[in-house]
């Protein structure tokens, strides 16, 4: 305290000068609107640059929070986009939950690989966050896999880079469909089987999910056809596809949970009997 008073006494002249200067500026601005305007402009410039500076620091510290918000917003938009992609089966389904019966949860990938022939992915959310086994996982620009098993806080996913996983696919604006399997080397190169050679597909067609399973909704685009050969012996196409996004290099994903999964499984079971 003594020091503060000493400093005040020592610098009393500049302090008084600044104080009186402030008073005179106040008088000046209250008397003349021209000066008031000028001073306001100056203070606006000064305060805005100050706030710009503090804001840039603030933003740096808020980045994590901002990211979280953006991811949430993304998942909301994703669900809207997927809903828009869903087929207009019946007009009366518009706006009903049946049109797009999926729930979207965004997750972070904590372990990913593409070096094995059968790859698995770990994510940082589990049953506590509403993730259930046997649900599809998509990314912002494609599909990633299917949830295999779930613990309280984590879940493991069968990556689409898994040679036993077959995914039902279609082509945008075509009627043909087939099933897609990883070739095993390049994480973006896939083979599509079971397309009869009479189908009208062409090089460069966009591949979308087929919607014939409870995992993925119809119409998520995720790759293009890069090679197309007719195998005259079997009567099937040999199709090589390339994904838009490398599944081994994604860090965020969305788990999509079909609300009617149980019903579909029940029907499937009955069929098998």
């Amino acid at each position: 305290m003594q020091r503060i008073i000493n400093a005040l006494v020592q610098f009393r002249n500049p302090i008084i000068y600044l104080f009186l200067m402030g008073i005179s500026l106040f008088f000046l601005s209250s008397r003349s609107s021209f000066h008031q305007n000028k001073l306001e402009k100056f203070s606006l410039y000064f305060s805005s640059s100050l706030y710009d500076f503090s804001n840039s620091i603030d933003q740096y510290f808020n980045l994590k929070e901002k990211n979280q918000l953006l991811i949430e917003e993304n998942s909301r938009l994703k669900s809207i986009a997927l809903k828009a992609n869903a087929p207009f089966l019946y007009d009366s389904f518009m706006g009903k939950s049946k049109r797009f019966p999926f729930k979207i949860i965004n997750v972070n990938i904590i372990k990913n690989s593409f070096l094995n022939q059968r790859n698995y992915i770990l994510i940082d959310q589990g049953s506590e966050d509403g993730i259930q086994p046997e649900t599809g996982v998509i990314t912002s620009n494609g599909i990633l896999g299917i949830v295999k098993s779930v613990t309280k806080n984590h879940a493991s996913i069968i990556s689409i880079l898994h040679q036993d996983l077959k995914i039902n696919v279609r082509f945008k604006n075509r009627t043909a469909f087939g099933s897609m399997v990883w070739k095993g080397l390049d994480p973006v190169e896939f083979r599509i089987d079971d397309i009869v050679s009479s189908s009208n597909i062409e090089l460069g067609d966009t591949i979308v999910t087929g919607g014939m399973s409870s995992f993925f909704p119809f119409g998520i685009p995720f790759g293009t056809i890069t090679e197309l050969d007719k195998d005259s012996d079997s009567g099937y196409f040999i199709v090589t596809a390339k994904l838009f996004q490398n599944p081994a290099q994604t860090y965020n994903a969305y788990v999509i949970d079909n609300n009617f999964k149980e019903e579909i499984e029940l029907l499937n079971k009955e069929e098998r009997k």
């Binding site: 000068y17 200067m21 005179s24 106040f26 008088f27 000046l28 209250s30 008397r31 003349s32 000066h35």
Partner: peptide
Amino acid sequence: GGAHAIASL
């Protein structure tokens, strides 16, 4: 206004 005050201060 305050011009004289500022200058002489």
